[in-house]
Amino acid sequence: MIISKEFAQKVVDHLMGIVQHNVNIMDCSGIIIASGQFDRINTFHQGGKLAVDEQDVVEIYTDDVHNFCGALPGVMWPINLKEKIVGVVGVTGEPPEVRNTAKLVKTVTELFLEREMFLADYRLENWMKEQLVHVLFANNADTATDLAAMADMVHYRLDLPRVVILFNLEPKINDFATNSLQNLVSDRMRESVLKLIQEADSFHINDFSLFYKKNLCILKSATDSGSAGKIKSFTTSTIKRLQLIHHELNVRVGIGSMTAKPTEISHSYHEALFALSYQSPNTIRSISEYNILANYLFEHSCLGYDCLALRELKSRFEAMGTKYDMQQTLQCLLDNNLNVSLTAGKLYIHRNTLKFRLDKLKEFVGLEPCHYFYHAILCKAILNMSKINSNLNI
């Protein structure tokens, strides 16, 4: 790791406010890159170069200064990072007076550098994750030639079914301090959030989490989320963990549909995004909720091909088969403005027979078109989708 001059000067400025001695940081060639004595920056310090060459502490007394080019009395310690010397830190003063201070400064400087390196790795990893999900969410998974390589770099398994879950984190304006609000979008806060989530028992090794466009995004693997109940349980426990970071944090959640392949991830993401933005008093909102799904279809003028939730409803509808003549029954019911008596007459069946069929529709699909307007819209969407598929098969 090469220490930048800007970062080194920040470390020097911070440490000098604590130790009350001049602090220098030198690179491995002995050039001072940061100092409390600005006129010494970019000058050669022979003591610093000696500390690198000998890989050990160097102490310079007043009587020895003339033997060291560019030096003042002080103690120079090599800076070690992952068992490699990356520079030297020195504290100006007679060695007996600053010896312990210099060792402390060395330790603190190494901690600063370790932290900076960790954050750099974190930013790089998060950037690579963002590039991957950008491809997936933009519906480019079928055309991206390097998708497998991108996924492998961030340990993302493309072969697993997943569901996209979005968490929006917002402070309560009246109770949340301004500095906390600023920290909310900082790398450190995001790192804390991701660490907290990833340490949860319900977070599987194949789950994928990152911040994407200001929302916490989790691509939950099917290993842990094979049912709506498990997804909701995971989401509820995640909200509780997030609020451990700050109890005054507002958390809203949008859940998309389960995907079977990478090319469907973008659909699940847009469904989750719509559910997240849907005006509702509920904290957790899912595209599988019929009122949200119906509005999603309406606002997106969606015929069903790009809506995984509608496809799921249609598959449950088709699982009923032809036993109850449900397709004709529903079409007639909709054509007659959901009037049960009129529909039964048009179909030449008893009213109780029609009621039996509608009970089966509720049992298999969960829709009650005669009781809920949104259910009627979804029934119409399923029928339209079935007609389109029939025409395509001709």
Rank of each mutant, 00 (worst) to 15 (best):
S227R: 04
A222P: 00
K84I: 02
D64H: 11
D159I: 04
V185T: 14
S225P: 04
K103F: 03
V135E: 09
R252K: 13
M258Y: 00
I25T: 11
T263R: 15
I173Y: 06
D201G: 02
F7L: 15
I205V: 09
P171H: 12
Y156W: 09
F118Q: 07
C307S: 14
T62Y: 12
I284N: 07
E59V: 07
S268V: 04
R99F: 15
C69V: 11
N183R: 15
L333N: 05
F112Y: 15
A275W: 00
N206D: 14
T109F: 05
Q46E: 15
C307L: 03
S192M: 10
A294P: 00
L293W: 02
G366M: 00
N295S: 08
P95W: 12
R190W: 04
N22Y: 11
I205N: 01
F356A: 08
L308K: 00
Q37K: 08
D121W: 06
N168P: 01
I394V: 05
G30M: 07
F167Q: 05
H247P: 10
N384I: 00
M150Q: 08
T353K: 05
A141P: 08
M117N: 02
L147H: 09
D175K: 15
S257P: 03
L136G: 02
T343W: 00
E83M: 13
A381K: 10
D152N: 08
S386N: 10
H155I: 05
E59R: 13
D146T: 05
N140T: 02
G74P: 03
V193G: 06
F373Q: 15
L392C: 12
G93D: 10
E312G: 02
S233K: 13
L358Y: 04
I287G: 00
H204L: 05
N295Y: 09
V365D: 11
P95L: 06
K360I: 08
E125R: 13
L111F: 12
L330Q: 11
C217N: 11
T178Q: 15
Y305W: 12
R188I: 15
L184I: 15
D146N: 11
A275V: 01
